[in-house]
Design a protein around this nucleic acid. Structure first.
Ligand SMILES: [Mn+2]
Ligand SMILES: [Mn+2]
Ligand SMILES: [Mn+2]
Ligand SMILES: [Mn+2]
Lengths: 223, 223
DNA sequence: CCTTGGCGTTAGTTGACCCTAATGCTGAGC
DNA sequence: GCTCAGCATTAGGGTCAACTAACGCCAAGG
């Protein structure tokens, strides 16, 4: 069987592969997982041996279909758990990430099925992230538009908010920036910052944050 | 922090200490955890070093107050999880043990609180086992009466059914032997077996099973 | 084309958790 | 009081997943 760590590696490779272009470098992976390169490198050996990744020496790593399936499975667990903790157990949706990040490795398929059923088979989690189906079909990999790309006067609707940093997430939530929220861009400062209007209030956000907020047009949102 | 294994050791020592009389022998512990004696012995060294157990060389092991607290914590997690899985997620109560046995080591205190609240702070789990309080007060250690001790003609009410063996549990459940069920002893055979009437049906059970079924008198049950 | 800095891999170490084989203790029966 | 069986501990090893230190590759700049 796979250890929790191995699942974390596969999940991280999946993300990096989706966000970047070519194969995933060892150091990017090490960075994402907060381990040293040698540690990542030797784990990659193991994962290759078991058929979850393919590597070209010095040239980076790609997931095999098996590896992608495992990654999608873990992501499904994670997002179902976040949804469940939020909607059924009353967790604040800014606080669920760590809990889901641990439990995703420890629940059974039966647990997964029951949770999905209790939630009526949801297709997105509370951050707006898509939940892989039970059959683990690959997710649509097209990047989507971010708030950072918008210009003054543009009005868009928040689709997804990254859940990487709980503090950031909590702050955004307090400012009213959550999925389905309508946002108007007021000003783009040349110092890597943007001011938007949300629910009547003005909020300023640095680029590193607006880049993590995925949006759709108002027209798309009405569908 | 404590590993899942360490928690399992402490839980096992707690049980053996409660069921037996004196300190827990290394081989009994090894048996319970399905490891060899040397393995158990060296884990006990570690647990002693960390202050969770006290040992007298060759004379056995006892939990310290800290060790008991950890054991109670894990047992609380286990029993809350079993109750939650059964009552809120629709698991069959014969199938929850393994799931709870893994998850008990991985849920946060926040998760524990939310689950307890969702269940209205239950005091017994679906097998009839008492759930330690949030403050982890020691549980009442008095043994209780078992079905095995009853004689023909006695009528009692099931209080607790052991959840150690899922198959056994499933069989008993199918026969209607669950907490709060009234049972009449019809016959005690001299070959280590007993026949009882449950809900109109006759059921025969070997001693090793009736010893694991804790009962109370009909009068006690009415309180 | 050769150097050099950065990244990747290899080698060796550690800690957790398991094993088997050998040795040490203890108490019950002679 | 001695013996010996049974249990406990010690010794020695293995695997897994992390680490640090050392070494190898490679591409960009001189
Ligand atoms: Mn998340
Ligand atoms: Mn799954
Ligand atoms: Mn149980
Ligand atoms: Mn707890």
């Amino acid at each position: 069987m796979l250890s929790a760590k191995m699942e974390d590696y596969l999940k991280a490779i999946y993300r990096l592969q989706r966000d970047g272009d070519g194969p995933v470098t060892t150091s990017a992976l090490a960075d994402a997982l907060d381990v040293t390169s040698p540690t990542a490198s030797s784990m990659l050996d193991t994962l290759e041996e078991r058929g979850f990744v393919e590597r070209e020496k010095y040239q980076g790593t790609r997931l095999t279909r098996d590896g992608e399936t495992v990654a999608l499975e873990v992501i499904r667990h994670h997002r179902l758990l976040e949804t469940y903790l939020t909607e059924q157990l009353g967790f604040d949706w800014t606080e669920v990430h760590d809990e889901a990040d641990r439990l995703e490795h420890h629940i059974s398929e039966e647990f997964e099925r029951r949770v999905a059923a209790a939630l009526d088979d949801p297709v997105v989690d509370p951050h707006g992230d898509p939940i892989p189906s039970e059959t683990l079909e690959p997710l649509d990999g097209t990047p989507g538009i971010t708030l950072a790309e918008q210009e003054p006067g543009d009005v868009v609707v928040v689709e997804r908010v990254s859940d990487r940093d709980p503090e950031e997430l909590s702050y955004l939530s307090k400012q009213g920036i959550t999925p389905d929220q309508r946002v108007e861009v007021l000003d783009v400062a040349p110092i890597g910052m943007m001011t938007v209007r949300v629910d009547g209030d003005e909020v300023s956000l640095p680029d590193r944050v607006t880049e993590m907020i995925q949006v759709i047009t108002v027209e798309e949102a009405e569908l």
